[in-house]
Design a protein around this nucleic acid. Structure first.
Ligand SMILES: [Mn+2]
Ligand SMILES: [Mn+2]
Ligand SMILES: [Zn+2]
Ligand SMILES: [Zn+2]
Lengths: 152, 152
DNA sequence: ATAAGGATGACTCTCATTCTCATTAACGCT
DNA sequence: AGCGTTAATGAGAATGAGAGTCATCCTTAT
């Protein structure tokens, strides 16, 4: 990962902009997230991976989220997952395995993104909503689970 | 709502199929959900709306979900929302206000649904996922919040 | 060097959701 | 109608992710 420096600089900047510091713990969290690129991590994985105490991890993830460095990914699991914000990694979507909870990044063709945006904008306007973003997830069964449990 | 009988019959059938009974409480929950059609309800709203004790409400919502009568809607709020399953109401998507948490049903044109399905199927196959369904949400600000807080 | 304010971590607290268990209500059968 | 089986109920306890507290430690700017 040669672009690592850029990442940290971008993160530091965003934190500074809201009056926060880029401490060793926060760096460890960002590193853990970057290492898991394409795989949103659960808070407990991050806890352990970054070797950060629980209360600090939650506090720092919140700070990083506020700074726009990190995004909370919502699934139907009972705990949260986090990934680097799209401003740092690019817009994408998720494959979610409803059997094991695995989450994986995917991108869709720009042509579809365009169609989706255009249509959703129209629909939202009609309903008096100001759209900020869309979320398009694929729910299904991952390869591992299909192999493990057979074709369900 | 003249089609109410049909709804209850469909629900009763689905419950019976998995060896469960359609009790008064479950009927009350289904009624509360039907009354709020197009607006996924939080568990506490359902609790109160259906006049059902907490432990029973959670247990019954789980039973109804297992029977495919009800669907848990995931948002970034810290509590769950429920709506009647798509098999009963039809496939649709959600407008989600990130300011007040309001959730509202929307449908998108069949042509877009088709494009989405086709593209996602291809993408998923490539990743070894067997897609079961897609989730397409619009995140933004509802009319009420825009008025209340001004254009953010 | 010093002051000001953010960051830390052990611990406590909250709150949605789940579990336990004794009791009650339904259903199917005779 | 009477019975036995099994699901459903409801009050309360337990669970667990996450948020809050506060005394202490560190950074950064002057
Ligand atoms: Mn992602
Ligand atoms: Mn809905
Ligand atoms: Zn899986
Ligand atoms: Zn709103």
């Amino acid at each position: 990962m040669p672009a690592s420096t850029e990442l940290h600089e971008a993160v530091a900047l965003r934190l500074r902009e809201i009056g926060h510091r880029y401490t060793a713990q926060r760096r460890a969290l960002v590193e853990a997230l970057a290492a898991a690129a394409g795989r949103p991590r659960s808070t407990s994985e991050l806890l352990e991976g970054a070797g950060v105490p629980q209360s600090s991890a939650y506090r720092n993830l919140a700070a990083l989220e506020q700074a726009g460095v990190v995004r909370r990914v919502v699934t139907d699991e009972e705990f949260a997952r986090y990934e680097l914000a799209e401003e740092l990694t690019g817009h994408h979507h998720h494959l979610i395995c409803s059997s094991c909870g695995r989450v994986e990044d995917v991108t869709v063709p720009p042509s579809l993104e365009r169609d989706v945006d255009r249509t959703l904008d129209r629909i939202a306007r009609r309903a008096g909503f100001a759209v900020v973003e869309h979320r398009l997830d694929l729910i299904g069964t991952c390869g591992g689970c299909a192999a493990r449990y057979g074709v369900r």
